[in-house]
Design a protein around this nucleic acid. Structure first.
Length: 373
DNA sequence: CGACGTGTAAC
DNA sequence: CCTTTTACACGTCG
């Protein structure tokens, strides 16, 4: 079944929005930061616009590094304002919904669109739809985006990467092999540093080499599933549908003012995070069965601890469970101090509408819970 | 198999 | 000297 899939990626979204609402910074190098609050410049770069990227400033980099690169240059550092970015994002996603047979939002600034039907299987028509989308986003919001078009999500995603910013790249099914052939494996979506290293040590450097590599030998290194996944990617194969997936887990994480192993100090932070998480749980109308804490130590090593309980959506239960997990963690790791701490809920299920008076439901068997839609 | 924990990846 | 959030694969254990 041949498909036509678009990937729409808003160009340096956060930075562009700040330029739009603050004319004073237009045309300058702009760096959007997540400040952690433990010292003046602690935190990381969320987005750098293209002017800032020219200086070597990139997303994920510590703010202090970015400031060093910006030394003596005219660079604007701004704190992020996710609330505002989300508002604009929602408007754009609504606009995209009108342009697609199906849509899948993957992050605040990215979405896949299946346009197979409305393009009538024609790449030319798909390109017209993409131009239409780019025009609308430009007129309505003053923003540019990069669009990739391909026979599946993987190719659409890599096509949108191909030309940025304000790009439009079409990779027809007949062009997939050529598009990928000499691409370094590190540029394949889903292949990161570790996997690139492992592939390189097998002498594999390009997508073509990966696609043609002996499958059995690859399986010995990566296991059957991962090996299959890797070779599919290298061949541009991706059957996953464009559809909004239900959330599997929801989490919140925060940075402590200073490294500590003090129970009450950490619980205070957990309390904040649990409150925030509960708001989201309520908004999503879900219940959860598993609670985890995420402990990030001074050396940034991550450890998790989790417990599965009776299905609930109660904030007190959430915090209580997190607290007991934290107590266990501190007991098992005496002397270890935490830098950051997080809380997560998983095993989510849609919340059922209450049909009987408060509390009465506990007299009934809950074995049918899995059948709820 | 379900629960739990870790690693990898991307944003 | 360092953010945040999510997904998924996989190993291990009982």
């Amino acid at each position: 079944m041949q498909r036509v899939v678009l990937h729409v990626d808003l160009d340096s979204f956060y930075a562009s929005l700040e330029e739009l609402r603050n004319p004073g910074v237009r045309g300058k190098a702009i760096v959007i930061c997540v400040y952690s609050g433990r010292s003046a410049d602690s935190g990381a770069v969320s987005t750098a616009n293209y002017k800032a990227r020219e200086l070597g400033i990139k997303a994920g980099m510590p703010i202090v590094f970015a400031k060093r690169l910006a030394k003596d240059k005219d660079v604007v550092f701004l704190p992020n304002d996710i609330e505002y970015y989300r508002t604009v994002s929602e408007r754009i996603m609504e606009l995209l919904e009108d342009e697609a047979d199906a849509i899948e939002q993957v992050s605040i600034d990215e979405a896949y669109l299946d346009v197979t039907k409305r393009s009538m299987d024609s790449w030319e028509n798909a390109q017209k739809i993409a131009e239409e989308i780019k025009g609308r986003i430009k007129i309505r919001e003053g923003l540019t985006c990069s669009v990739g078009i391909g026979p599946n999500k993987l190719i659409a995603k890599m096509a949108s990467e191909y030309k940025k910013p304000d790009g439009l790249t079409v990779v027809r099914d007949s062009q997939v092999t050529d598009f990928l052939s000499n691409l370094p494996v590190s540029k394949i979506y889903g292949i990161g540093d570790k996997t690139t290293e492992a592939l390189n040590s097998l002498g594999i450097r390009t997508a073509r080499e990966l696609a043609n590599f002996d499958t059995v030998a690859l399986e010995r290194v990566f296991g059957r599933n991962k090996a299959r996944l890797l070779q599919d990617k290298a061949k541009g194969i991706d059957e996953s549908p464009v559809q909004q997936a239900e959330a599997q887990q929801i989490s919140r994480i925060g940075t402590l003012k200073e490294d500590t192993d003090n129970l009450e100090t950490i619980v205070e932070k957990l309390r904040e995070l649990a409150a925030d998480l509960s708001t989201r749980i309520e908004k999503e109308k879900v219940v959860f069965r598993t609670v985890s804490i995420i402990a990030i130590e001074t050396d940034l090593k991550v450890q998790t601890k989790s417990e599965t309980i009776q299905e609930t959506d109660d904030e007190e239960t959430l915090l209580g469970t997190a607290r007991s997990l934290l107590e266990r963690f501190l007991q098992e790791n005496p002397g270890k101090k935490l830098r950051r701490v997080g809380i997560r809920v998983s095993h989510l299920a849609p919340k059922r509408e209450k049909k009987m008076p408060e509390g009465l439901d506990r007299y009934f068997n809950r074995a049918d819970a899995d059948l709820t839609q």
